[in-house]
Amino acid sequence: MRFDIITVLPGLLESPFAHSILQRAQNKGLSEIYVHNLRDYSSNKHKSVDDYPYGGGSGMVMQIEPFAACIEKLKAERDYDEIIFMTPDGETFNQEIANGLSLKKNVIILCGHYKGIDQRIRDVYVTREISIGDYVLSGGELPAAIIVDAVVRLLPGVLSDETSALSDSFQGDLLDAPVYSRPADWRGHKVPEVLLSGNQAKIEQWRYEQSLERTQKRRPDLLE
């Protein structure tokens, strides 16, 4: 799977993609992540990509031409399944969306800044608008990194245990059950006996019951 991320701050994305699971996915050839500097597509000598909004008001607006130039260059090289704009007024990102995106092959993500991007970019090019929550950040880079992380870990072969992602919280609309490791007894706090029993059927039943109980307490909306 290939991601092309368009941003005015490419350096902000260097670290998230250079470590851990995302790094391994790229080293294995299972995912490609390319970050494009929007300023490279500016036509003025100052490499600016923003201007004052028509109609007045506070803030600056990201211009249409640099985005259009970058998107059209990429689309001339390959077909894209989605062109995503990260925005607070998009649909709220969840596991179901991540699962769906993991089936795609080529995805572009646009990172906004300032007051936003020219609406015509959203009208002409964007196929999906996604938010990571009801709050505003300085730009779309961190949300883009979250999308990539959530999706790439679902790709076959990325995780050493391919069943791990299937048992994560929100898969099947349930939060994950509590997990334990060694030692079995830490300062009087003991691992539940069922997990030490070796009876896999009872263990799975316990995990399901714990997932259901945790979801009912913390996120009852998921059960609706």
Rank of each mutant, 00 (worst) to 15 (best):
Glu129Cys: 08
Ile130Lys: 12
Ile130Arg: 11
Ser131Glu: 09
Ile132Tyr: 03
Ile132Lys: 06
Gly133Pro: 09
Gly133Ser: 07
Asp134Glu: 14
Tyr135Cys: 12
Tyr135Trp: 04
Val136Ala: 07
Val136Asp: 01
Val136Tyr: 00
Leu137Asn: 07
Leu137Ser: 10
Leu137Glu: 03
Leu137Pro: 12
Ser138Val: 13
Gly139Ala: 13
Gly139Asp: 07
Gly139Lys: 13
Gly140Tyr: 00
Glu141Ile: 09
Glu141Ala: 12
Leu142His: 06
Leu142Lys: 15
Leu142Pro: 04
Pro143Trp: 02
Ala145Val: 00
Ala145Thr: 03
Ile146Met: 02
Ile147Asn: 05
Ile147Val: 10
Val148Gly: 08
Val148Asn: 05
Val148Trp: 00
Ala150Pro: 11
Val152Thr: 10
Leu154Cys: 06
Leu154Phe: 00
Leu155Thr: 13
Pro156Glu: 04
Pro156Met: 06
Gly157His: 02
Gly157Met: 00
Val158Met: 04
Val158Glu: 02
Val158Cys: 03
Ser160Arg: 15
Asp161Pro: 08
Glu162Lys: 06
Glu162Arg: 10
Thr163Phe: 15
Thr163Arg: 14
Thr163Asp: 14
Ser164Val: 08
Ser164Asp: 10
Ser164His: 06
Ala165Pro: 10
Ala165Gln: 12
Ala165Ser: 11
Leu166Asp: 15
Leu166Pro: 08
Ser167Val: 12
Ser167Tyr: 08
Ser167Leu: 11
Asp168Gln: 05
Asp168Ile: 01
Asp168Thr: 01
Ser169Phe: 03
Ser169Lys: 06
Phe170Thr: 04
Phe170His: 08
Gln171Ala: 13
Gln171Arg: 15
Leu174Gly: 11
Leu175Arg: 08
Leu175Val: 09
Asp176Val: 03
Asp176Trp: 01
Ala177Phe: 03
Pro178Cys: 02
Val179Thr: 11
Tyr180Ala: 06
Tyr180Leu: 07
Arg182Gly: 09
Pro183Met: 06
Pro183Thr: 05
Pro183Trp: 14
Ala184Trp: 15
Asp185Leu: 11
Trp186Ser: 12
Trp186Gln: 05
Trp186Ile: 01
Arg187Pro: 07
Arg187Val: 08
Arg187Lys: 10
Gly188Ala: 08
His189Cys: 11
Lys190Cys: 04
Val191Thr: 10
Val191Phe: 14
Pro192Thr: 10
Pro192Leu: 10
Glu193Val: 00
Val194Trp: 08
Val194Gln: 10
Leu195Ser: 03
Leu196Cys: 03
Ser197Ala: 09
Ser197Arg: 05
Ser197Tyr: 06
Gly198Val: 06
Gly198Met: 03
Gln200Asn: 14
Ala201Cys: 10
Ala201Ile: 11
Lys202Asp: 13
Lys202Val: 07
Ile203Ala: 03
Ile203Arg: 12
Glu204His: 12
Glu204Arg: 15
Trp206Glu: 06
Arg207Val: 00
Arg207Asn: 05
Arg207Gln: 06
Tyr208Thr: 04
Glu209Asn: 15
Glu209His: 11
Ser211Glu: 13
Leu212Val: 05
Glu213Gln: 12
Glu213Trp: 14
Arg214Ala: 10
Thr215Val: 04
Thr215Leu: 05
Thr215Asn: 12
Gln216Gly: 13
Lys217Ile: 05
Arg218Ile: 02
Arg218Glu: 02
Arg219Phe: 01
Arg219Tyr: 01
Arg219Ser: 02
Arg219Pro: 04
Pro220Asn: 07
Asp221Arg: 03
Asp221His: 05
Leu222Met: 13
Glu224Cys: 13
Glu224Pro: 12
Glu224Leu: 15
